[in-house]
């Protein structure tokens, strides 16, 4: 995927979000730190062009909710910012890569501490497989089959698949 493909995928996902929710009433985008946050802002920009509505964008750091604390070093990356009350909202979680699903599990627990959304949906740029939990994305940029030891990197320039550097 190059930068153009990335932008086209964002444009398509934005359309799908608006279509699925019959507009953008109550929709809040929440990017996961760190890779999901710029994507959430890009999606919001596309949604503004499509529906002429500015949807609120938040960011969520799940470090304090991870299930591998103690198994590997875990530190918060940035401060969580939830701009609106989530009670009754339609929350679209946004992340760059969906892998084991453990980050999303942590994000769902974190969200519950801020309120009770009416519905939570998941948008990811890349689904690379290898799920360890029963979690499935609602909106996907690209399904990318990978080996477990490969690294998927989503940047402004596109999506790269590389070897793990040890």
């Amino acid at each position: 995927m190059d930068a153009g493909d990335l932008q086209r995928a964002i444009w398509r996902i934005a359309h799908e979000i608006a279509e699925r929710n019959h507009g953008l009433q109550g929709v809040v985008l929440i990017g996961l730190q760190t890779g999901g946050v710029p994507l959430a802002h890009k999606l919001a920009e596309s949604l503004r062009q499509i529906e002429d509505i500015a949807v609120p964008v938040g960011s969520l750091d799940v470090a304090l909710y991870r299930d591998d604390i103690g198994l590997r070093p875990v530190l918060p990356e940035a401060v969580t910012e939830i701009p609106v009350d989530l009670d009754g909202a339609v929350v679209v979680l946004v992340d760059d890569v969906l892998f084991t699903g453990r980050t999303i599990r942590a994000a769902l627990n974190a969200l519950a501490d801020y309120g009770r959304p009416r519905v939570v949906q998941l948008a990811v740029m890349v689904d690379r497989g290898h799920r360890e939990l029963p979690i499935r994305p609602d909106f996907v940029g690209k399904n990318l089959p990978t080996r477990r030891d490969e690294v998927v990197d989503v940047t402004e320039e596109g999506v790269d698949l590389g070897e793990m550097h040890r």
């Binding site: 470090a63 909710y65 604390i69 918060p76 940035a78």
Partner: peptide, 24 residues
Amino acid sequence: EELLRITDSMVEVSQRAMPRVPAL
């Protein structure tokens, strides 16, 4: 500086209606 940065996240937790996370 790292400890002060982590503190930023802990201040956010402390300001919530229910200031508790499952971290430890």
